[in-house]
Design a protein around this nucleic acid. Structure first.
Lengths: 156, 156
DNA sequence: ATGTATGCAAACCATTTGCAATGAC
DNA sequence: GTCATTGCAAATGGTTTGCATACAT
């Protein structure tokens, strides 16, 4: 889809600008990471990213991965989340893409859930004495797949 | 307040039942922890809890603290959260006490924010193919205190 | 008496850091 | 040529685990 290409292009531009503004170098590693994230991945953790980079032919060290994540979070191209688990997970940021995360406590899958009504209700809410910057709305529970599995197992 | 005492009493009862049902022992450490949580603390981390227990005169080891947290989470007397930071934080659970967390990214304070309208909007939402169990709604940003401080510093 | 729970210390694991070598500028 | 960035390996820090001792039942 052309739209995807545009989004990726815009992200690269934003990253370039950010790096320039902060006197950081535009290394191949950094752009390979951004490229991958904006091609394939909606939600990912460091491990997944590392493996994907290896497959892509440009393995990148842990240190660099974490370093780059910091930069990308800082320039708001990705968002860092933590759920119940020890490791962080990341996702592409898009301010015009408000959604909840449905986190299955059984299979650990993460699904986005969009709802314009909720979006409006939350974003329009004026919170006293607080200046909201970012929303992390996570609903944990069971995805239908796991709910079915568990019910089946119980019967046995 | 009498209501607080009732809540604490109910919590103790629930914990006792849980321990009995799972053939666990009713040790002084476990009840000291529960007692403290239901007296003082709304949000806390392991470290805070550890210090508080030391002050209370019954120091409890790390291992036991974590062990007890697992039990309390399991019987739904407390809820475990993770924000951006490495350490987990916990809070007393009460199903009839729906709220958002306002997390200040500057001073790391956590404030509860209740809003019945939002509560209704979210709880009534029927999510397709997902069975919600728990809601973690975190809004990160700046508390008014920090916003003021930062603005002041910028001017200088 | 039995076997679970405790406390200690060691292990674990994601993330961070120090440093020498590399490479963007 | 200069100095930020990379990759490695070691360090960190919250959490977990193994094991001998203590204690709830």
């Amino acid at each position: 889809m052309d739209k995807d290409r545009d989004i990726k292009q815009a992200a690269k531009q934003k990253f370039t600008d950010y790096l320039t503004a902060n006197k950081c170098r535009k290394t191949p590693e950094r752009f390979a990471i951004l490229e991958l994230i904006y091609s394939d991945m909606r939600h990912f953790d460091i491990d997944t990213l590392s493996v994907a980079l290896q497959k892509s032919g440009l393995p990148v060290s842990r240190a660099t991965l974490y370093n780059t994540m910091r930069l990308l979070v800082d320039c708001k191209l990705i968002v860092k989340h933590r759920l119940d688990k020890n490791r962080a997970f990341y996702e592409r940021a898009s301010t015009n893409d408000f959604h909840l995360h449905l986190v299955c406590t059984n299979c650990l899958s993460i699904t986005d859930y969009k709802d314009t009504e909720l979006q409006r209700a939350i974003l329009n809410k004026k919170i006293k004495k607080f200046k909201p910057v970012h929303y992390a709305l996570n609903v944990s529970g069971l995805c239908s797949e796991c709910a079915r599995q568990l019910k089946k197992n119980k019967k046995k």
